[in-house]
Amino acid sequence: MSRTTMDLWVGVFVAMGIAALFFLALKVGSISGSDIQSPYTLSARFDNIGGLKVRAPVKVAGVLVGRVSEIRYDNERFQAEVVFTVDGRYKFPTDTFANILTSGLLGEQYLGLDPGGEEKLLAPGDVIKKTQSAVVLEKLISQFMFSKAAEGEPAPAK
């Protein structure tokens, strides 16, 4: 069996298809799964996680360092437990603060970490104790309204 021009065309076709896949993988998408090297997991408990979702980004000083891997409800503490994986290259002190923040006014919610000044570092599997819950817009507005209403109340009659 000898090589034919048809083989050449099939080769060109397959090469083009694979090139397109590589284009989609590298230029269009980001291989975030393998972007995180030697990951380890941490967790944090929140009173309210707002709209945080699995796979939401974990950021420190605006830099993406990991992703939320699991969200569950702790039935004994009546709190939400957020488990997230962090890149092994990054270490955080034990008094790191975990916040749930929103990117932009209407953007998605993410987990923001604020490293503290402690010498000891968080080990894999540790739980971050200092947390701040998500800001719920409705609560904020109602607080504002109540405080405004209290201000506007006329002084009690003499």
Binding site: A25, G29, S30, R55
Partner: peptide
């Protein structure tokens, strides 16, 4: 254009599921 695209499109979740 490219940065927002790469931020939103995940290889395993979006591209591989499409394949």
């Amino acid at each position: 254009f490219w940065a927002q695209m790469q931020d939103a499109v995940d290889f395993r979740y979006d591209v591989l599921n499409g394949v």
